[in-house]
């Protein structure tokens, strides 16, 4: 038990961070090289101003027509993504770990706020699951991998919530928490979670095509 804990909280952390960072760089660089070779137009038409203009409209809540048409989805999506990124970065317990290991620290969330934000992430995952199962147009596109991806994202938050509240078996749950966080990190570059690293490029490219070439808005 202690041996396994030491393993997931020691070497596996290193491995997962290395895989996450190097994997993300690998995906970005291989795609950039592939684009240079096979889609050189991407470089020709990519336009910084119009890329930013499009990205800006799509990272502001209700900044696009479709977001206004789907208010529930918009609110949930934004709340989900904000909490998903902020909680792991600014959770007091995580900041302490950085402090202990590297002697670096930064601003952190109050425990109460983090707790609410965690519930928002879990609630959002349930919303996405229900939406996937009940909306025919989403269900039609769904494959098993979509449920697995959703589980990968939800797991660190469910286990983290469990551990924080010290519910039964929380010591084992802590191991699951660390492990699931590591799985998620590693999954980002190699699954559809890679939309995190590719979003600026796909949106930016469409923004450039619409803005610089086609003189039109894409939101």
């Amino acid at each position: 038990m202690h041996g396994f804990y030491d393993f997931v909280s020691g070497p596996l952390v290193w491995i997962s961070f290395i895989l996450f960072i190097c994997g993300s760089l690998y995906r970005l660089i291989t795609m950039a090289v592939l684009a240079k070779e096979k889609d050189p137009m991407v470089y020709a038409y990519m336009d910084f101003y119009y890329a930013i203009r499009s990205i800006f409209h799509w990272i502001i809540p209700f900044g696009s027509v479709n977001m206004r048409r789907q208010p529930a989805m918009t609110i949930v999506t934004f709340a989900f993504h904000i909490c998903l990124i902020c909680v792991p970065l600014f959770l007091f317990a995580h900041v302490i770990l950085w402090k202990e290991s590297w002697n670096i620290s930064w601003w952190f969330l109050s425990d109460g706020a983090a707790d609410i934000m965690t519930m928002i992430v879990i609630g959002s995952c349930i919303f996405f699951l229900v939406r996937r199962l009940t909306r025919p147009e989403v269900r039609y596109l769904t494959s098993y991998s979509d449920f697995i991806t959703l589980a990968i994202v939800a797991a660190p938050f469910i286990t983290g919530f469990w551990v924080y509240h010290q519910w039964i078996g929380y010591k084992i749950m802590l191991i699951f928490h660390i492990l699931s966080g590591e799985i998620m990190l590693v999954a980002i570059p190699f699954t559809r979670l890679s939309h995190m690293i590719f979003f600026p490029f796909t949106r930016g490219y469409m923004g450039s095509e619409f803005g610089a070439v086609k003189n039109a808005r894409d939101w």
């Binding site: 795609m31 950039a32 592939l34 684009a35 070779e37 096979k38 889609d39 991407v42 479709n66 048409r69 789907q70 989805m73 909306r135 147009e137 989403v138 039609y140 596109l141 769904t142 494959s143 979509d146 559809r192 890679s194 939309h195 590719f198 979003f199 490029f201 796909t202 490219y205």
Partner: peptide
């Protein structure tokens, strides 16, 4: 004849169905 665009477009689609309407 295809490359990064095709790969990224298929990898990035999260199957959300928001394009439907």
């Amino acid at each position: 004849e295809t490359g990064a665009r095709l790969r990224v477009y298929t990898d990035t689609c999260v199957h959300c169905g928001l394009c439907s309407e």
